[in-house]
């Protein structure tokens, strides 16, 4: 019924998607969905590093770079959290169970999680930027002894736009884990923090000299978060950002994702703040 040329080392074409099936679509918020995919033909799923992304192709519509938001130790499936903002993302989240999606990847350089062994891990997420950080949380919680404390600072626009709410509640109860959540607009029933994510720093128990900080969210949020972390005593090379630019190929051929000398797709998307700081200040770079 179905066939596909399986990529081997000799004829590997990084531009050729592999067919995957939609196993599950979970609605996270009004416009954000988490998709679980499984390779067809009994083919395995390539292992990924937290922070890496795939190119997801919807037949006849287009292809998008989407961060992997699932558990890196779960080798059988790939999980993505997608915010529907345009035609392509909309068609991606509207797939039904069993339908096919083309997958290329995983691509890019992820979070340097192994450098964090023996140190605290500070996760600072804004909005959909939480998705590529969730694999970091899974990695730390599965290997609890390898890491120090886990601090999760997460900001969303409103309580209704919070992702992974059940898991947030569960992570709060984990040992050596601090979870702080803030929203821009709380509404009457919200009893938590209100304000941008950097306002959470004063409640976080941070040990800047023995921590690695990973941040993903809108660029302006990351700029302020990194600046604040530096003020708190974090070394620039211990702060990591996940950058976003237009991407067509994910392998350095299309040229779209250039950011100064860097290709976001292969040199990133994760970069240390000492590399990004001079570039973040440049308007329309």
């Amino acid at each position: 019924m179905e066939e596909n040329k399986v990529a081997t080392a000799a004829n590997f074409d990084p531009m050729l998607p592999q067919p995957y099936s939609v196993l599950q679509v979970v609605k996270e918020t009004a416009d954000t969905f988490t998709l679980t995919l499984q390779a067809r033909n009994g083919a395995g799923t390539a292992p990924f590093e937290p922070g890496q992304f795939s190119m997801l192709w919807v037949f006849g519509v287009g292809e998008l770079p989407i961060s992997i938001s699932g558990d890196p130790s779960d080798l059988g499936r790939l999980v993505y959290t997608v915010r529907s903002v345009g035609e392509a993302t909309n068609s991606l989240v509207n797939r039904e169970v069993g339908e096919a999606i083309g997958v290329r990847g995983p691509f890019g350089t992820g979070w340097p999680i192994h450098q964090a062994e023996g140190r605290d891990v500070v996760v600072i997420a804004g909005g959909i930027g939480f998705a590529p950080l969730r694999p970091v949380i899974y990695e730390v919680l599965h290997n609890r002894k390898k890491y120090g404390r886990l601090v999760i600072l997460y900001g969303a626009r409103s309580p209704r736009e919070l992702l992974y709410r059940k898991e947030l509640a569960a992570w709060v109860r984990q040992n050596d884990t601090q979870v702080l959540v803030t929203v821009d607009y709380g509404g009457l029933s919200w009893r938590g923090h209100v304000g941008v994510v950097t306002t959470l720093f004063k409640y976080a128990r941070l040990q800047p000299a023995r921590s690695l900080a990973f941040t993903c969210g809108p660029e302006i949020m990351m700029r302020f978060a990194a600046r604040e972390l530096e003020n708190l005593g974090f070394a620039r090379e211990n702060i990591y950002l996940s950058m976003e630019r237009n991407m067509k190929c994910a392998v350095g051929f299309c040229g779209h994702c250039q950011y100064g000398p860097h290709f976001i797709c292969k040199d990133g998307p994760v970069f240390s703040y000492d590399k990004m700081r001079p570039l973040l200040e440049k308007y329309e770079l």
């Binding site: 019924m1 179905e2 066939e3 596909n4 040329k5 531009m15 050729l16 998607p17 592999q18 067919p19 099936s21 067809r40 037949f59 006849g60 069993g98 339908e99 096919a100 083309g102």
Partner: peptide, 13 residues
């Protein structure tokens, strides 16, 4: 880069 066919839930790339 590629041609593909889709029939129901089958996809040929």
């Amino acid at each position: 880069l590629l041609a593909a066919e889709r029939h129901g839930q089958t996809l040929r790339i």
